[in-house]
Amino acid sequence: MIDTAERARKAQDRSAGSVLEASAVELTIGDQRVLEGVDLQIESGEIVVLMGPNGAGKSVFLSCCAGTLRADGGEIEFFDRYAPRAARGLFSVAIQGDTADPELTGAENCRFFEQLHPAGTDEWQTLAERFELTEDMDRTVGAYSGGMARKVELASALSADVPLFLLDEPAAALDLSMLRVLHDELLRRRDEEGASVLLTSHTPLDAQIADRLVFLRNGRVYADGPPEGLLDELPPVLRVRGAVPDDEQFVGNRAFGRGDEVRGFLEQETDAEAIEAELPDDALVEIDPPSFTDLFNYYAYLAGEESQQSREATTTRSPESTDGTAGPVGSEQ
C-alpha cells in the first residue's frame, strides 16, 4: 500500500503540466475512416470523459493513446515528451473485452497484472473490497458474471500507481452503486494523488465526475468543454408529458423518450408555444433545464445533424438564420 505522505508527494509532483496531447489523430481501419483528425489535451489532475454514440471512435482513439493501435496520422504525446509506447509505464489501461484470464481466480489475475506493470501495487485488494468482490476473489473468473469480471479488471487497472488512467467504458456492466464506487475512486485519485483520467463512455452519469467533456462522433470532436459550459450552450429543452409531439418540430427532426416523457431541443424557446398549441390541453409542455442525458443526446446524435441543417438553411434562407451553435470543433461556422 502507498502511505499518505507518499500520495501527497506524488500529488505535488503531478501538480502541473500537460499529461496527454493528441493532435490531428487519424486512423483508417479497412476502408472505414474511424478517426478524422482528433485533437485532445489532458492536463494534470483532470478527469476528461470522452463521450459519443456506439461507433463514434472513442475506444479506437483510446487504443491509439494506449499504444495498442497505431494511428495513421497526427501525433500523440505524453508529458510533452513520450510517444504512447514509450509512456506505457506511466499510465494504466482498462480496455473492453475479456482481459481477465477466465482460468485464474480474481486475485491471481490482479497479481499477474501487478507483476507486469512497473507501477503495479497490491492496492487491488482494497479496491476489490470496495467493489464488494472480496469473497469472490478466490473463485476463477470464468465463473464470474460480466459485471464481476469487469470489476476485477478495473481493480487491477486502478491499483497501478500512475499519473494517468485510460479507461474504456469502465461503467459498462456496472450497477449504479458500483458506478458510484468507481466515480468516488476516480475522484479520490484526482484529488489526493493528482492523477489524470481519460475515460470513454456513453453513460451520461459519467459526466458527473468530468472536469471536461469531449464529444466524439464519426471520428471527429464535436464539443470540448466543462460540463456546465456545454450545458449552458445547449438549445432550450422542451419536455412533453401526456402526448407525443411531431419529431419534425425539434432540432434534427428528433425527440428522445425518457420514461413517460418526450424531450427535444428547440431552435428557440418561443417554438414551445407552437408545439403546445398542436397538443391536447391536458398534455404537459414545458421548457426544462437540460440534464446530462440531454447533453449526451444533443452532442451524440444531433450536433452534426443540426450543423447540416444549418448549412442547408444558409443556402435557402438569409445568412442571419444560422446561429452556428454546433458543429465539429474547428470547422468553419
Binding site: I2, E6, R9, K10, Q12, D13, R14, S15, A16, G17, F79, D80, R81, Y82, A86, A87, R88, G89, L90, P118, A119, G120, T121, D161, V162, P163
Partner: peptide, 15 residues
C-alpha cells in the same frame, strides 16, 4: 510501493 515517480515537479515523470 513503486518506483514510478517524477524526480522533480518541473520534470516529466520517467517511465
Amino acid at each position: 510501493s513503486t518506483e514510478t515517480a517524477a524526480p522533480d515537479s518541473a520534470e516529466p515523470p520517467v517511465p
